[in-house]
Design a protein around this nucleic acid. Structure first.
Length: 734
DNA sequence: TTAGGGTTAG
C-alpha cells in the first residue's frame, strides 16, 4: 500500500487511517467471486449522506495522482462504489474515468460514464466532455466522434471544452472531413473564436495537411499565445517544412514571445532537418540564455541537432555538461557518432557508459550493432551479439534483422542465412530485404533472385527497399535481363519508382557497357536525377573510358555536389586514361582551390583483440618494417606466379619504376601481408577498405589466395570480394 | 470540475 501512496500526501490530509479502512474493504471485495468493481457500479442506491467532505475528495485525489496501474486504480475505485461516495462527487467520477483511460482501459471508463449517466445525475456537458477527452487522449478517434455525435443527439450542448478534444481526435487520424464538420458545428455555436478551439483548429488543419486553412485561422486570430505559435511552428516542422517553421519562430520573437521547451524542441528538430550548423549555434545559445537547456528533453534535442548538423564536438559538450542523462541522451550521442562515421568514438562512449547509471536498451543495441556492421568487424559484432543475448533485452524482429545485416556486412553470410532460416514465423519484409541485399553485396545474384521469388511465394509483399536490393544484386552479378525484368515489374507491386531505383539501373547498364541505354534511362526520369544517378553514370564512364558522357555526368555532379572530392577524382581518372593531361591538371587545380583532398586509402584488419589500420605507404604502423619486408617478398612471388603489375593503378605523374614501387604498398596489400604473417594458416583473412579495391590489388590478391592457399575476404565501399584458389567471387566484375 | 502545442534515440 505504502508504495503506491505518497507519505507526504497522507500526512497532509491526515487520512492514513481512513485509507487503511477502505483498503481493507477493497481487499474484501476482491475476495468475493464474480464481482467486478467496474461493472458492478450500477450505482442504483442513492446516498445516505447528502454531501461528500472536501477532505475525502482531496484524499482520493492524492490516491489517484499516485496510482499508475489498472490494479491499483481498481483498488481505489472499489471502496467508492461500496460506500456510494462516487454518487456524491461527479468530480471524482470524472477523475476515475480519465485515470481508466490513462492506464489503457477505456472500456472501464465507459462503463463508469454510462453508470453515472443512468443513475440520477442531471445531464451535463462536463461528464460528457470528460468521456470524450478520455477517448481522444487515448487515440480512440471513432469512439470520440461517436460519443460527440450521441451527445448532440441527446440534447446536451457541446461547449468550448468539447471542441478541442473532438478536433484532436480528428487530427490524430487525419480525418479532415470530420474535422471540418466539427469546425462548422463550433462556428454555429459561436465557439470557433475561443482561443483553445482556434489552437486546436490550427493543429487539426495542419496535421491533415491543409496548411492554407491552418495558416488562415492562425493569421486571423485576435490573440495568439505561445501555444498557438508553437502549434503552427510544430506543424511546419512535422510536415518537413523547416524553413517555414524557422520564419515563424523569428516572427514569434518579434512579437516578444519567449519560447518554452515545447517550442525549442520543435525548432531544434527543424534545424536538424536543414543541417544548418550556424542556426544550430544560435538556438543552442537561446536555450542557454533562457535556461531551457536544463530540461533533459531540450538537452537531448540540442545534442541531436548538433549531431545532424555534423558537429559532434558541440553535441559532446552538451552531453558532458548535462546534470542528468537518460538512455535517450546516450543513444542520441551514439547515433550521432554513427551517422557522422565516427565509429570508434561510438565504441569508446559505449564502453565509458558501462559503469554509469544509464541502462542500455534495445535502441542502444540497434545502434551499436549498426556500428559493428559499418566497421565490418566480425569479432566485435559477435561480441555485441553475445552481449545482447546475455542481457535482459528482448531481441525483437528489428534487432534480429540488424544482427543478420551485421553478419552479412561483416562477411559472414552463412550466419546471416542461418539466422534467417531459424526465424520462419517471425520474419518481416525487412528480414527478406536484409538477406537479399546480403546476397547482392557478396555477388550471389542468382540466390538473391531465388530468395525474391520465395518471398513472393510466401505472400510477403516487396517494398521499395526490396527492389533497391534486388536491382543492386543484379547489378553486382551482371544479371542485366533479370534486372530489367524486375524494374519493369515494380509497377505491378505498386512500388513507386524512386531516384535510387534509377541509380541502380544506371549502375547495372553502365557497368556492363550499355552506356547509351543508361543515359536514356536518365533522360526518361520524371524528376531531376540526383547525384547518386549521375555518380553511377560517371563510374560507368570511368570503367569504359567514355570521356564525352563522363563530362555530362561530371558537370551535373559538380553542380549538385560541388565539394565531393570523389567526383573530381573520377573525372580526372577518365581524362588521364585518355591522355588528356591538361584537363587532369585543371581538375586538380579546382580541388586545390577548394581546399579538397583525395581521401587517403585505408585498410583495417582485425588480429586478436586489436584492429590494425594501414594507409598506402604506411610507416606509422608498429609492424610496418616487417610488413614492408613481407610485401617485398610477396611482390617477387607474385611476379614468379605470373602477376603483371597494372601500372595504371598508381599515381599518374610519377616514373614507371616508381609506379611499381608504390603499388607494392597499397593499403589492402599491406593489410593482407600483415594477415599472412600474423593470422593462423587456415583462418580467413578479413580486410575492410574505405575505398574501392584497385585493379592491381584485385589481381594480386587472387594470386596470393592461390599461392598461400588462404581465403581472403575484402569489403570495399561497394561490395565483398571473396578470394579463394586464385579466383574472386565477383568474377572480376565490379 | 474538464481545454489548445510535445518530448529528443532506432
Amino acid at each position: 500500500m505504502k508504495s503506491t501512496v505518497s507519505d507526504i500526501g497522507l500526512a497532509k490530509t491526515g487520512m492514513l487511517r481512513f485509507y487503511s479502512y477502505y483498503y481493507s474493504i477493497s481487499l474484501s471485495i476482491y475476495h468475493k467471486p464474480f464481482l467486478n468493481p467496474v461493472t458492478s457500479c450500477s450505482l442504483r442506491a442513492c446516498s445516505t449522506f447528502s454531501y461528500i467532505p472536501d477532505s475525502t475528495e482531496s484524499f482520493y485525489d492524492h490516491l489517484l495522482k499516485s496510482c499508475n496501474g489498472l490494479a491499483s486504480l481498481k483498488q481505489i475505485h472499489s471502496p467508492l462504489i461500496t460506500t456510494n461516495l462516487l454518487l456524491k462527487s461527479l468530480h471524482l467520477g470524472a477523475r476515475i474515468i480519465i485515470k481508466y483511460a490513462e492506464v489503457g482501459d477505456p472500456y472501464s471508463a465507459r462503463c463508469l460514464f454510462d453508470g453515472i449517466n443512468e443513475n440520477g445525475y442531471k445531464p451535463c456537458s462536463f461528464i460528457w466532455n470528460t468521456m470524450i477527452r478520455a477517448y481522444a487522449n487515448g487515440g480512440h478517434c471513432m469512439e470520440t466522434l461517436g460519443l460527440y455525435s450521441r451527445m448532440r443527439r441527446t440534447g446536451i450542448s457541446p461547449n468550448n471544452y468539447t471542441y478541442p478534444f473532438v478536433l484532436k481526435a480528428c487530427a490524430s487520424k487525419v480525418l479532415i472531413l470530420q474535422g471540418k464538420a466539427a469546425h462548422g458545428d463550433a462556428f454555429k455555436c459561436g465557439f470557433d473564436l475561443d482561443l483553445h478551439v482556434e489552437a486546436a483548429l490550427v493543429d487539426m488543419y495542419a496535421k491533415c495537411g491543409q496548411f492554407g486553412d491552418a495558416r488562415k485561422i492562425f493569421d486571423e486570430m485576435a490573440i495568439k499565445d505561445l501555444v498557438c505559435w508553437t502549434a503552427m511552428v510544430t506543424a511546419y516542422e512535422q510536415a518537413e517544412k523547416p524553413e517555414e517553421a524557422l520564419i515563424l519562430f523569428q516572427k514569434m520573437q518579434k512579437d516578444s514571445l519567449l519560447a518554452d521547451l515545447v517550442t525549442i524542441v520543435s525548432v531544434a528538430s527543424a534545424i536538424s532537418q536543414l543541417g544548418d550548423a550556424k542556426k544550430a549555434g544560435a538556438v543552442h545559445a537561446y536555450s542557454i540564455r533562457h535556461s531551457l537547456i536544463e530540461n533533459i528533453c531540450v538537452g537531448n534535442s540540442i545534442i541531436a541537432m548538433h549531431a545532424k548538423c555534423g558537429n559532434m564536438d558541440k553535441a559532446c559538450l552538451v552531453f558532458d555538461k548535462m546534470d542528468e542523462r537518460n538512455v535517450i541522451s546516450l543513444n542520441t550521442m551514439l547515433s550521432g557518432y554513427a551517422q557522422n562515421g565516427q565509429a570508434s568514438e561510438a565504441l569508446m562512449l559505449f564502453e565509458s557508459m558501462h559503469d554509469s547509471e544509464v541502462e542500455f536498451n534495445e535502441v542502444t543495441a540497434l545502434i551499436m550493432v549498426g556500428v559493428c556492421a559499418y566497421l565490418g568487424s566480425h569479432c566485435l559484432g559477435k561480441k555485441f551479439h553475445d552481449f545482447v543475448t546475455h542481457s535482459k533485452m528482448e531481441i525483437d524482429v528489428n534487432l534480429w534483422n540488424a544482427l543478420m545485416d551485421m553478419y552479412a556486412k561483416c562477411g559472414d553470410l552463412e550466419t546471416a542465412v542461418d539466422m534467417f532460416n531459424s526465424k520462419q514465423s517471425e520474419r518481416d519484409v525487412s528480414s527478406w530485404n536484409v538477406l537479399i541485399s546480403g546476397y547482392g553485396m557478396h555477388g550471389h545474384g542468382r540466390q538473391a533472385l531465388e530468395l525474391f521469388s520465395r518471398m513472393q511465394e510466401e505472400g510477403v509483399e516487396p517494398n521499395h527497399i526490396t527492389f533497391t536490393s534486388i536491382l543492386s544484386a543484379c547489378s553486382h552479378a551482371g544479371l542485366i535481363d533479370e534486372g530489367k525484368k524486375c524494374f519493369a515489374n515494380m509497377k505491378k507491386w505498386s512500388v513507386t519508382l524512386e531516384d535510387k531505383h534509377y541509380a541502380c539501373m544506371v549502375d547495372m547498364l553502365g557497368r556492363s557497357g550499355f552506356l547509351e541505354e543508361a543515359f536514356d534511362i536518365i533522360k526518361e526520369m520524371p524528376s531531376p536525377p540526383s547525384d547518386a544517378v549521375w555518380g553511377a553514370l560517371l563510374l560507368a564512364c570511368k570503367i569504359h573510358g567514355n570521356t564525352e558522357l563522363g563530362e555530362i555526368a561530371a558537370s551535373n555532379l559538380f553542380h549538385l555536389q560541388p565539394n565531393v572530392t570523389g567526383y573530381y577524382i573520377l573525372m580526372s581518372n577518365i581524362y588521364a586514361a585518355s591522355n588528356k593531361w591538361q584537363e587532369v591538371g585543371m581538375l586538380r587545380q579546382v580541388l586545390r582551390n577548394k581546399g579538397l583532398k583525395k581521401p587517403a586509402a585505408f585498410s583495417v584488419i582485425n588480429y586478436g583483440k586489436e584492429f590494425y589500420g594501414f594507409h598506402t605507404g604506411d610507416r606509422e604502423n608498429p609492424y610496418w618494417q616487417e610488413v614492408y619486408r613481407k610485401s617485398e617478398s610477396l611482390a617477387v612471388e607474385l611476379r614468379m606466379a605470373g602477376h603483371v603489375p597494372n601500372l595504371s593503378c598508381a599515381l599518374h605523374d610519377v616514373e614507371e619504376e616508381d609506379k611499381e614501387h608504390i603499388l607494392k604498398y597499397h593499403s589492402e596489400k599491406l593489410a593482407v601481408a600483415f594477415g599472412i604473417m600474423m593470422i593462423d594458416p587456415g583462418m580467413t583473412i578479413r580486410v575492410t577498405k574505405n575505398l574501392r579495391v584497385c585493379h592491381d590489388c584485385h589481381s594480386a590478391l587472387k594470386f596470393i589466395s592461390s599461392i598461400y592457399g588462404r581465403k581472403i575476404i575484402v569489403r570495399d565501399t561497394n561490395r565483398f570480394h571473396h578470394f579463394e584458389g586464385g579466383i574472386c567471387s565477383c568474377k572480376d566484375y565490379w
